[in-house]
Design a protein around this nucleic acid. Sequence first.
DNA 1: ATGAAAATCACCCGAAAGTATGAGCCCAAA
DNA 2: TTTGGGCTCATACTTTCGGGTGATTTTCAT
Lengths: 157, 157
Amino acid sequence: MRNPFSKNKLVILYGASLAGILLLLKWLEFRFVIIDHAFEIYIGAIALIFTCLGIWLAVKLTKPKTNTVIVEKEVYITKPAAGIMPDEKTLLKFGISKREWEVLALMSEGLSNQEIAERLFVSLNTIKTHSSNLFEKLDVKRRTQAIEKGKRLGILA
Amino acid sequence: MRNPFSKNKLVILYGASLAGILLLLKWLEFRFVIIDHAFEIYIGAIALIFTCLGIWLAVKLTKPKTNTVIVEKEVYITKPAAGIMPDEKTLLKFGISKREWEVLALMSEGLSNQEIAERLFVSLNTIKTHSSNLFEKLDVKRRTQAIEKGKRLGILA
DNA sequence: ATGAAAATCACCCGAAAGTATGAGCCCAAA
DNA sequence: TTTGGGCTCATACTTTCGGGTGATTTTCAT
């Protein structure tokens, strides 16, 4: 991904929690060791805690899960063209960033801001910011105008 | 979700494994209890095992979310046909009226509903009605989708 | 390492878009 | 003449867009 650090953070956090919990439990050991069956309770607690920890870890690490449920019928294809390549020069000329172009591209496919946000794994507000900046750079007022201009400029399929 | 049973199965399985592992560990307890620091190792093992268990559980429970079903049908290839003339057949097929097509065409140029209304000398509400009907006929939810579909269908330049 | 650009997110608010429903007018076909 | 479709318009309501502002975090090049 583009943020190896956040993963490291998770690992570090995991290690820290592990150490912390072990310490806590070690401490608890001296307090409840006198209770009958304390050992079993102890083990159970650890099992529970670490099971939860595992679940949490898994969820965190597999977050960018692609839940693609596509159910559609008629598909219309205009051209086999693999026109995913934007016109670099034009993008530079207008100062349009990669992310902004991605947003524009998804806009041109008719997605709402919310849908674009989900597609790109960012928040709705972020998409709004990107689109605002994009509109300013393209000197347009609406997404439909942006799409129209984008096509004319050759930065959209 | 739609399969509460498989979840119950998993829960039961989880409980069973938990019990089993506890038994195993209890048994191991008698074997290695003599070793120094056996307790810490013991705890560590449990932590590790249950962390893995948690991860496994989480993965199992969240896995059946990615079912990709792609169904493609009829493929329409639009002709670079010139112009202003809409594809009559397609319009008929979708039951799109002349007025609705005009609205769609102006939409695709990036005009707002208000601007379209002024251009066609009708009220804003009329344009809204037209566009709503149009969206229903095209089976879309937004003007951007309508534009996109219109182009694919060859009823837009 | 440090500073600029990019990317991220939040909150507010007004404008535009879209939905739902009902209604009147005109015209052509049944 | 009745009926249906297209066109017009309205009111009321919800949702989405877009502008403005400010902030933090990443990224990247110097």
